[in-house]
C-alpha cells in the first residue's frame, strides 16, 4: 500500500514538474516578443520599450521563473494580453460551458455505450453484433474532428436544423424553459460529435467484458443452477463488469478533456479548450500558459481519481 502511494505521488509530482517546466521553458525558447501582438504602424520605438516594461518582460529569466512558480501556487496566471483580465478568472468563467458540454456528452456516451454493449453481448454473432461492432471500428478509427465536420455538414448545411455555433441564441429567448431548450438545441451537434466518436469504445469494452465473463466458471454455475439468461446477464455478468467500467470512466476522461479543444473550436463554444486554441493563435502568452496548466492539471486529477476509484471498487487488484 505504501509503495503504491509513493508511486502515485512520484507520478503526480513528476507530471506536475514536467508540465510546469514545459510551460516555462517553451515560452522562453520562443522567438519573437509579445509586444509584437499589439504593434501598430503608429508606434515609435520608445513606445515599444514602454510596452515591454509594462508587461515585465525585461526581467532576467531566473527572476521570471521564481515569479512564475509563486504565481502558479497562488493560482495567479497573470493577465491576458488580449482582454487584460486575470487568466484565472477567464478560465473559471469558461469552465461551466466546458463542464456542461463534457458532462452531458459523457453521460450520454457512457449510458448509450454500456447499453449497446449489453445489447450486442446478448446477441453475440447476430447481424446486430456485426453491424454495431463494425460501426464501432469505423467511428473509432475516424478522427474526432472529422466526425464533427460531418455532423456540421449534414445538420448545419444540408439539413439546416441545428445551430452550429455558440451555446445560446443572440439574444436568448425570454423565460426559463425556452432558455433551457435554446441551450439544449445548441448542445446537440457538439455532444453528438463527442458521443459518436467515443461511444464505440464503450460498447466494445462492455461487450468484450461481458462475453469473457459469460464464459467464466461462475456464470456457467449460475446457468447450471437454471437461472434465466436475463438474470445471469444482469445479475452476475454485468455486476462483475462494473469495476473495470468505472475505471474506464475515469481513464477516458483525459482524452475527452483534450478532445474538447477540437470540438469547442469547431462549434465556437466559449470553453477552456477553445480558450487555449484562441490564445495560441493570438500569441496571448499568459493565457496559453494558464489554459495549458489548467487542462494538464485537470487531466492529472482525473488520472489520480481513476486510480483511487479503481482500488475502491476492486481492492483485489494492485495497480501497475
Amino acid at each position: 500500500m505504501r509503495t503504491y502511494f509513493l508511486r502515485r505521488l512520484f507520478v503526480l509530482l513528476g507530471s506536475l514538474f514536467v508540465i510546469v517546466t514545459v510551460n516555462f521553458v517553451l515560452f522562453r525558447l520562443m522567438p519573437g516578443s509579445p509586444v509584437d501582438t499589439v504593434i501598430s504602424p503608429d508606434f515609435t520605438p520608445e513606445m515599444k520599450a514602454l510596452l515591454m516594461e509594462r508587461y515585465g518582460l525585461n526581467e532576467p529569466y531566473y527572476i521570471q521563473y521564481g515569479l512564475y512558480l509563486k504565481n502558479l501556487i497562488s493560482l495567479n496566471f497573470g493577465r491576458s494580453f488580449q482582454t487584460r483580465l486575470p487568466v484565472w478568472d477567464e478560465l473559471l468563467s469558461r469552465l461551466p460551458n466546458t463542464l456542461l458540454l463534457l458532462g452531458s456528452s459523457f453521460l450520454i456516451m457512457v449510458v448509450t455505450g454500456v447499453a449497446l454493449g449489453i445489447f450486442v453481448a446478448s446477441r453475440r454473432g447476430s447481424r446486430w453484433d456485426t453491424v454495431l461492432t463494425g460501426s464501432a471500428v469505423f467511428f473509432g478509427a475516424m478522427p474526432g474532428f472529422f466526425i464533427a465536420l460531418l455532423l456540421l455538414l449534414v445538420f448545419g448545411y444540408y439539413i439546416d436544423v441545428f445551430p452550429v455555433h455558440g451555446t445560446m441564441s443572440a439574444p436568448p429567448p425570454t423565460g426559463f424553459w425556452p432558455r433551457v431548450y435554446d441551450r439544449l438545441l445548441h448542445l446537440v451537434l457538439p455532444v453528438a460529435s463527442i458521443v459518436v466518436s467515443g461511444v464505440g469504445s464503450w460498447m466494445m469494452y462492455t461487450r468484450n467484458h461481458l462475453v469473457t465473463t459469460l464464459a467464466a466458471d461462475f456464470i456457467r454455475t449460475a446457468q447450471a443452477k437454471g437461472l434465466s439468461k436475463r438474470r445471469v446477464l444482469y445479475g452476475h455478468a454485468l455486476r462483475s463488469s462494473l469495476p473495470p467500467l468505472v475505471t474506464l470512466f475515469f481513464l477516458s476522461l483525459p482524452n475527452i478533456i483534450t478532445g474538447a479543444v477540437v470540438i469547442e473550436s469547431i462549434f465556437s463554444i466559449q470553453g477552456i479548450g477553445r480558450y487555449l486554441l484562441q490564445a495560441t493563435l493570438r500569441q496571448d502568452y499568459p493565457a496559453i500558459e494558464g489554459a495549458f496548466f489548467f487542462i494538464a492539471v485537470a487531466v492529472l486529477l482525473c488520472n489520480l481519481l481513476a486510480d483511487f476509484v479503481y482500488r475502491l471498487v476492486d481492492p483485489r487488484i494492485e495497480v501497475r
Partner: peptide, 20 residues
C-alpha cells in the same frame, strides 16, 4: 442593437443566410 459574436467564418456565413 444586438451584436452576436461569431468567430468562425463558416458560422458567420450561415448566420446571415439563416437570418441570425
Amino acid at each position: 442593437i444586438i451584436m452576436p459574436i461569431i468567430t468562425d467564418s463558416e458560422a458567420r456565413y450561415l448566420a446571415l443566410l439563416r437570418g441570425e
